[in-house]
Amino acid sequence: MASTFQTAVITGATSTLGVACATHLANAGYGLILVDANRPRLHAFADAMTTRTRQAVEVVPMDVDSVAQRRAFIDKLALDESRLGHGPHRGRPWRHA
Rank of each mutant, 00 (worst) to 15 (best):
V57F: 03
A78D: 13
I74T: 12
A97G: 13
A78V: 07
R71Q: 15
V64Q: 01
T4H: 02
A28K: 02
V60E: 09
T53A: 09
R52K: 15
R71H: 15
N27I: 01
T7G: 04
H89K: 03
H43E: 15
E81K: 12
D63A: 11
P93C: 08
A20W: 01
T53L: 04
A46Y: 02
T53W: 01
R52L: 12
M49G: 10
I74C: 12
V64H: 00
P61Q: 14
Y30P: 05
V67S: 08
L17R: 00
F45K: 08
H24M: 09
F5Y: 00
W94N: 06
R52Y: 01
A22P: 06
V64I: 13
N27F: 06
D65N: 13
G91W: 03
A72K: 01
H86I: 10
A20E: 07
H89T: 10
C21N: 04
M49I: 07
D63Y: 04
V9Y: 00
L32N: 07
V60D: 04
R52H: 10
R90I: 07
H89S: 12
A97T: 08
N38W: 04
L25E: 05
R52E: 15
T53V: 03
A68P: 06
A72M: 03
M1E: 06
T51Y: 06
D36V: 06
A97W: 07
P93D: 12
I10H: 01
D36W: 03
I74R: 03
G91Y: 02
V60K: 07
D47Y: 00
V60C: 14
D36S: 14
V57P: 09
Y30Q: 03
A37I: 05
L17I: 13
